[in-house]
Design a protein around this nucleic acid. Structure first.
Lengths: 194, 194
DNA sequence: TGTACATCAGTGAACGCGCGTTCACTGATGTAC
DNA sequence: TGTACATCAGTGAACGCGCGTTCACTGATGTAC
């Protein structure tokens, strides 16, 4: 009686969410229409509402998924201080700046998220906290809780640095901002601020 | 023969730009329609194209104007280190977070600007550099040039911190991010990173 | 084994709406005489 | 001093277009017999 198996529709839904993640990061939330999002997933616009309640619904799902991907990336890092430095250098790299579609959803979408629906903001908050928690555990396995506030704020700073570098039309200056940003982030992690 | 005097149209244009600055910061670039922007200035949509080439044109002008306002604000600060701390505390305040329409255009619009037209990005780059230059002169009157890179990157970090605080749906956490952000920014200014 | 059928993921045209932009017109203005 | 006029900032209706969303339909599927 069930012809496709429940995993088929689930897989399609997942495909839409993943494709949407890239498109949203590259063109923005308002800049990405439902028809384009569906075409990216190899479908037509009509099928959209069999999978999601609304565009806002998809946006919230995509934000959540993007953040869980960010979190999984943490697992690939070497442990301890070396991993930290690697992450900072990767985050504030020219590569990351020039390819928002492959990168951090915070840097690509943060001010659109603040103006978004409550559901999107909540998905963002939960996702980013899970990411930050994981980060804190990796940075300070002995006392992750006390590292949390610092990790949160340094991450916020890195988001701004990447965005800022993306917005500058002077490339040399944009590169310099990234380099100084790396030094700042590492210095903040080293220092016992407060 | 000239009935209104050239200052009349100029004043109207300025009024549109100023009203647009607030609206754009509050609703975003894509979120602010021409009709609304004109209504904010007490006009109807039809008059728009007597003042600007396009919506993109106005956006670039408004971004430039917003940044020059930011720059003028610097003049009101007490000189030296006290002024610096005042600025940081004001920038990363709950007040600023909760009223984007009165605040910094970078924090409100940065990732829409990165996706914007070249004219907008260039207006942003020029405006922000003028602001940062002024800031560096005030911070290190003896050697502003060497302070520039640091000021740039710390400013970028503060932008991210404010945006991040705006996007979090957990208010206590959002407040904590601001507080830690103030400590980070001040520590970075104190320290001789590099 | 072959065929009729119920299911439902996906199609694609259509909906009303608001967007950025255009344009024929209005009406308040200061000037000319 | 009063009136006819040229100017032009601003009006508001209309344009085509793409948006998010809806819906009648299609057609591939595995099942029942």
């Amino acid at each position: 009686m069930v012809r496709y198996g429940k995993e088929h529709k689930q897989a399609t839904r997942q495909r839409i969410i993943e494709a949407a993640g890239r498109r949203l990061k590259s063109d923005g939330i308002d800049g990405s229409g439902v028809a384009v999002l569906m075409k990216d997933a190899g479908l037509t616009n009509g099928a959209f509402y069999a999978h999601f309640e609304s565009k806002d619904d998809l946006v919230a799902q995509a934000v959540a998924h993007e953040l869980s991907m960010q979190r999984e990336h943490l697992g690939e890092l070497p442990p301890g201080r070396a991993g930290l430095e690697h992450l900072v250098r990767q985050y504030l790299s020219v590569e990351h700046r020039d390819h928002p579609e492959d990168g951090c959803p915070s840097a690509a979408l943060l001010d659109e998220i603040s103006r978004g629906t409550d559901a999107t903001k909540q998905a963002y908050t939960e996702g980013v906290l899970a990411f930050i928690d994981e980060f804190a555990v990796r940075l300070a396995p002995d006392d992750p809780q006390s590292a949390l506030a610092k990790v949160l704020s340094v991450y916020a700073g890195m988001i701004g640095t990447l965005q800022f570098s993306r917005a500058l039309s002077d490339r040399r200056l944009a590169d310099e901002v990234l380099e100084q940003g790396i030094r700042n982030a590492l210095a903040l992690f080293e220092a016992d601020v407060r």
